[in-house]
Amino acid sequence: MKVIRRRLALMALGATLSACATRPAPPVQHYSLGMSRADFRDYGGAKANPCDAEQRWLSDELTAVNGLLARFVEGTDKLGNPNSVDHPRQVELLKEAQRTLPPVLDVHERNLRGLARCGFKDKGAFPEISRRGGELTTAARGRLAEADGVLAQAALRAAQGKWKDESLQREATARGTWCTETPKVGEATVYFARQGLEGGTEWFFCDGSRVEQRAGTEPAFVEPEGLKPQDRRRIKPPRYLEAAVNFPAEEIDRAPEGSAPKSAAPTP
């Protein structure tokens, strides 16, 4: 009787260990990125063995995630070219990926490592799935590593564009505030100053004159177009240059930080 009970206990223990070794497949997770979709299972997270999975299912799941990663990598290949017509759309895709893709990459890498321990790893499409998966996870992580810099530059360009558009309106408002309807030629009255995206600065005068200073150069006087000879005699360029030098630096309309040198005061 003792022998029989011992055998029964061993059989029960074996059944228990067998049940633990073949855990049920984890639930399918659905993921989307842009226009791409992929269904997969987190075998490692559920402490399940992908080698126990139905091979066709495992192949389909790994292939689906590989395909999604390939479309992400290919769909963000113009991030370094802000002039590309695809750049805004690719920036939005990168933003979405930065928020949602890292956990999917973690799961995919665990599943690929699990596949490497399976007896069928060298059969059918699995070798190519594994090779391609390694390449794509590395490429996708590379894209995500660039995300902070790319998105910061995109935000700066958007801020610069907004500043440029609004600066024209600020200039018009300043002219209406500080200039008379018929300003006298020769009166060096600055109504607006702007530091541009390239670092140069312009000072605008009510009579249409300007003082212009490009980055790294001396300021220069620019007279209005179409001046009559008698009006030209009234203009004294040194007065305009002096007015530009004395214009308060804090009142210069500047491009968003990072686009031009901080100092906008002209060289005396």
Rank of each mutant, 00 (worst) to 15 (best):
L69I: 06
A244E: 14
M35P: 00
F120I: 01
H87C: 09
P237D: 08
P238W: 13
A220P: 04
L33G: 07
L33F: 09
V65T: 11
V107M: 10
K228L: 13
R89M: 06
R132A: 09
N66Y: 07
Q98K: 15
T16Q: 12
G80Y: 02
F205S: 09
G199T: 00
G258D: 06
V211D: 07
E171V: 00
D253M: 03
S36N: 10
G133Q: 02
Y43G: 02
V65C: 06
Y191I: 10
R117K: 14
A25R: 06
T267F: 04
E135K: 15
F204V: 02
G149C: 00
R143I: 01
K95D: 10
A147L: 06
A155M: 08
D42M: 07
N83G: 09
R175H: 13
A159G: 05
I4Q: 10
A15G: 12
E212V: 15
G216K: 05
K184I: 12
T22H: 14
N111I: 01
V185N: 01
L101F: 11
D207N: 02
E171I: 02
P183S: 09
P237G: 03
S209A: 15
G142I: 08
I235S: 04
A12M: 13
Q98I: 01
W163L: 01
L10H: 10
E92R: 15
G114Y: 07
E92G: 05
P266S: 04
R5C: 07
G258F: 08
K184F: 00
V73K: 10
G80C: 05
L17Y: 11
F120Q: 02
L79T: 07
A25C: 01
T180M: 04
W178P: 01
S84L: 06
V65I: 11
D77S: 15
W163Y: 05
A244W: 12
G149Q: 02
R143M: 04
L112H: 04
H108N: 07
I4G: 00
G196Q: 05
K184N: 06
G208C: 06
A158W: 00
G45E: 08
S18N: 14
V85Y: 03
M35W: 01
E218H: 01
C20H: 11
A264R: 05
G142A: 09
K2H: 15
R233A: 12
R89Q: 15
R6T: 12
E109Y: 06
S36F: 02
L17E: 12
G199L: 01
L62I: 08
D60H: 00
R170I: 03
G80F: 03
K95T: 13
G124R: 13
S259Y: 00
W57G: 10
P266R: 03
D39Q: 11
G199W: 04
A12G: 05
K47Q: 05
R99A: 14
A260G: 10
F221R: 02
N246P: 00
N246D: 12
G14Q: 13
C51D: 06
S130I: 00
G142P: 05
M11Y: 11
Q213E: 11
G133S: 02
M11C: 12
L144W: 04
E92I: 10
E171W: 00
F126A: 04
